[in-house]
Design a binder for these strands. Structure first.
Lengths: 233, 233
DNA sequence: ACCGGCGTTAACGAATTCCTAACGCCCGAC
DNA sequence: GTCGGGCGTTAGGAATTCGTTAACGCCGGT
């Protein structure tokens, strides 16, 4: 955040965009606008905004889905703006990864205050690095590229999800249940054997000696753990 | 967050406290209650809760003032609960350092979701994990890593469960029955002999002289006790 | 229709973990 | 002095878990 904080507004209704543009314009913020989910995701990935204001009622996609997609690689604060104020909607959005939820119509002052809260969090969190580096292994969570000693390795979708989940909590143990939930999503229960197979595949792709894994160790009876991320500067 | 997240509730009205106690009780949270601002500040300082729920309408002090006071030394998420829903109140509270603001009456589901958001932030802040440290022994309860003199020690699942239970109550005696309940879960009763075996294994792994245990002492006829943890900084 | 990549399940050897049993020790009770 | 209970210690076999390979079905592209 070298200059003014950058705010990404994803909203399809032009009047609302005008309104927010005017409200934010009076403050030292730079504004980025998108009127579709697709464009919003592209801007989020390309410009690394400091806060995202997301309207749930987009025509070309589910806002909850967008939230989870962004959360796969970024911790940028997301403030949801929605016309629907039911408890279920709020809970679903917050659990999908949103940081706040405002019901339309909202007051500008409150929105600005909540944006300030979000920015405060962002600076306190520091710079969430988009890449996890552990020894020779490097996982770029934004571009989905995994390299070992600089050479790119190809991972299948589930392999990547598994590795990314471990990377996001590098240094900590993830139980079998947590991993299954991260990769397959909550409801499945009998995937614990598939887990071992995929882990084996991953190890053959990233470990120097797959029989003696150093990067991803197994905690018998509990789960797996990726070695702690290398210390940054 | 060694075990369940600790939530501090600062609220003067007994019915509301009862209500929240019931709502939170159904979830894996530990609850701390205060009915005055003074008591709340003391508990916040003494117990380092993971989330603070703060009612603004306390009789013995201004909630905004309390928020700023806490923010002087802590970044613990503060969720304000207030009967007043005016924009000015919200902005003032959020700018004073609160992280969220809920207007009474609020739905329980939304409160719980916003608590989860707050807890998510707390873990993402990247502060070093809280650990129990007793002499050369260090037990990181979140990443599940045990070290002695800095070198990592491998523990089997039951060994770890046993050690973690003792660590959580370090300084206090845990009876055989309590330990069996912690490790095997409530119903089993004839595991008191297995207890001795596992304790023996643990001692060989963490004690300098397993025959003269210093870290985990046995209270004859009662149970075991881990030496009190070193004073934190 | 063929083929290759992918996800899942099955099967089996190997390693790990867990419990029970057995024995020796210490210490208080009688 | 001796008995008995609580505890520490060790060993062995049962049970669980893990790693590994092979096979099967699915799907998209050619």
């Amino acid at each position: 955040m070298a200059t003014e904080p950058l705010i990404l507004l994803i909203e399809d209704e032009a009047p609302m965009r005008r309104f927010l543009r005017a409200a934010l314009g009076a403050h030292p913020y730079r504004l980025l606008e998108a009127d579709t989910m697709r464009a919003g995701l592209a801007l989020a990935a390309g410009h690394a905004p400091d806060v995202i204001l997301l309207d749930l009622g987009l025509p070309d996609g589910d806002g909850l889905d967008a939230t989870s997609r962004i959360r796969e690689w970024s911790t940028t604060p997301i403030i949801v703006l929605s016309a629907r104020g039911l408890e279920g909607d709020k809970v679903a959005a917050l659990d999908a990864g949103a940081d706040d939820y405002l019901t339309k119509p909202f007051s500008v002052g409150e929105l600005l205050a909540r944006i300030r809260v979000a920015l405060r969090h962002a600076t306190a969190t520091g710079k969430p690095d988009p890449a996890v580096v552990v020894g020779p292994l490097r996982i770029d969570l934004t571009s989905r590229i995994v390299t070992v000693n600089g050479v790119e390795v190809h991972l299948t979708p589930t392999e990547y999800k598994l590795l990314a989940a471990l990377a996001r909590f590098s240094g900590r143990v993830l139980t079998h249940r947590q991993l299954v939930k991260e990769v397959w999503g909550g409801h499945t229960t009998t995937a614990t054997q598939a887990l071992r197979v995929h882990m084996n595949q991953i190890r053959h792709k990233i470990e120097a000696n797959p029989a003696r894994p150093l990067l991803i160790t197994t905690e018998p009876g509990v789960g797996y753990r990726m070695k702690e991320q290398d210390q940054e500067v």
